[in-house]
Write a protein that binds this DNA or RNA. Structure first.
Lengths: 355, 355
DNA sequence: TTGTACGCGTTATCAA
DNA sequence: TTGATAACGCGTACAA
């Protein structure tokens, strides 16, 4: 039971006032050589840990956090991120944080720039960003830097982008996990890899998953599998179904399909129509459409990106950084969760974070 | 931007003093009918949320949390629980909680009673318990109840035990997940189920996993698998190896082994000696010995109980309940995480909880 | 029964 | 450059 050391105690030990100690600790200057030395000496000896409770109570400035992410109505993938963000907000707003959401069209540069402008206009103290568009994100990050606003990114990693922290998953390893699952579940034959629903801009992003997938298959696939990358028509176009049917005809020994995006349900729907549900289908993310087909068995497994947790951690990190002045990790990879029919419910019941 | 409503504000609105408002909110009595009514009226209209920061700063009473769990030196399974507990402590001790650990021998009633006694002697405000021994735990829970000490349990669920909250996993579903994995990975043949390392007391505990396993196999196993429960010699005895070898001889078509405890490494070690690593082995928990064999491929998959998270949540729940007076869930099932060679590292890098 | 005043540890302000 | 002091919102002890 070591008693707590307060600023007041330090002041007494160093024979100075609390104000001086405060100035030294936060090095705000305006301290004489002499006083500085005395205080530092005491600080060396004892292990001062500031009382964060008292600090937040005192400096009751509310920190404004702007969140920039795609509109979930345009891509359901983002629904769970928002849930995590709101959950974090509801847990942290008592520490004096305000969160404002700016939703953009994930494929429209104009939309992004518009929302980014609004976000900066709000004069936030921190920003959480899902950088779906490379060029636009880079420009925005620069704006943040010149404005001295800390930036945390999630979901999509962009190398050259300067940020405080990134929260997401290891895409390369994620591809390996998918391949491992495929090798476990599919019969020997042809495996299709498709990036349905993704834009060209994200080629790096996508490449990592495919590279990981192929790497595993080359190392551990025992030559049982032939991996072929296919480009399908957009799922919104009427050609989509034909395009898939034709691909399957071209590759009659197709035993598995790896969808590197959250759009596996589009494939599943068509496979059911074509009566080809025996094909082993692996995709990403626990969005409603995917769950339907995971339950019916057409989708065999989903890799869970923990998007809810990504959002939650994003807000938590910014709060820690701004409110509590805690150090936060520069990189946080979340687990590559393997979800099947049998453990699905155990994940769904954990979408809340109350801890 | 709704401004914060303080007790002072309520007092002004109701034309009473802060003291009166305080008495009403915490219903400590000593309030006249008249004043009570006025304050309640205001409270109805506005949505008062007490400032938890100020509350904890003010009432600087430290809450004492006693933790009762098995000594990790006697069973490595408990190592990660402790890590989670300590992590939670390090994050919450600024809110004025003190944690004291009481470690017992998981198979000794005497040891448990001894530690339980010490724990109560410490006069804790809340208790976190891993109830490995049924009878002893029930008696202890009663003692807690008569002493009015809130009790949270984790890992092992005991039905009749009165507690504030339970944190663990759905054992029956866990068995189903194991079976699903087995059906994916093992060739048709005999599957052994073994409860190695568990005591008879926990038959209910164990039964749920096996029931789930058999249920899945009966429903979805397509008669490919014959499930047989085997009782092996204790892994500490010299007979262990022989006992397993003999079992494998008795069941020559053995294609898989499901170990319902964290002791899969004992089987793995022997399988390697016997040169039978082709047998599909599924077990529980990311303890070091298991990881070695998961990496070497002798163990095919581990179901992760998130024991670290269990401990973390246990402390968090008690803190929420005692310090912040928040409601906490009566039951929290954690995900049934499927861990393979490829996604293992993504779990290991997440043993910290900094959020 | 009611109201007031002090303390929790820190930050911020202001006079010296 | 310093030190004293008033907030921050709540709990509590004590006086009215």
């Amino acid at each position: 039971m070591t008693k707590i050391i307060r600023i007041k105690d330090i002041a007494e030990m160093a024979n100075v006032s609390m104000g001086t100690v405060d100035r030294v600790i936060h090095n705000r200057g305006k301290v004489s050589e002499d006083a500085l030395k005395k205080v530092l000496e005491v600080l060396e000896q004892i292990n001062y840990k500031p009382n964060l409770i008292a600090r937040t109570l005192s400096s009751s400035k509310t920190q404004r956090l702007a969140v920039l992410l795609p509109d979930a109505d345009l891509d359901p993938f983002w629904r769970s991120s928002i849930l995590g963000i709101r959950q974090a907000y509801s847990e942290h707003n008592q520490f004096g944080v305000a969160v404002s959401e700016y939703l953009f069209d994930p494929y429209s540069g104009d939309s992004f720039r518009e929302q980014a402008r609004k976000a900066l206009e709000w004069q936030p103290d921190g920003i959480l960003l899902a950088p779906t568009l490379r060029q636009e994100a880079l420009a925005f990050a620069e704006a943040c830097q010149t404005n001295q606003i800390p930036l945390v990114c999630f979901n999509t990693h962009i190398n050259e982008l300067a940020m405080l922290s990134f929260i997401g998953q290891d895409l390369h390893q994620s591809g390996r996990v998918a391949a491992e699952l495929m090798a476990m579940m599919a019969s020997p034959g042809t495996i299709l890899v498709t990036h349905i629903g993704e834009q060209v801009q994200n080629s790096v992003h996508i490449g990592a998953k495919e590279t990981g997938f192929r790497e595993f298959m080359a190392q551990k696939g025992r030559n049982h599998f032939e991996v072929i990358t296919v480009q399908l028509a957009s799922p919104t176009s009427p050609d989509f179904e034909n395009s898939l049917a034709q691909t399957l005809e071209t590759h009659p020994h197709t035993k598995g399909i790896y969808v590197t995006t959250s759009k596996a349900y589009e494939i599943a729907r068509t496979l059911e129509k074509l009566g080809k549900t025996h094909v082993c289908l692996i995709g990403y993310d626990l969005i409603d459409d995917n769950l339907t087909y995971l339950r019916s068995g057409t989708i065999n497994s989903l890799i869970h990106q923990n998007s809810d947790r990504q959002g939650f951690l994003g807000i938590s990190y910014l709060t820690d950084y701004l409110v509590f002045q805690k150090p936060i990790p520069a990189l946080r990879y979340l687990p590559l969760s393997i979800v099947t029919r049998e453990n699905l419910d155990s994940y769904l019941s954990n979408i809340d974070f109350s801890q």
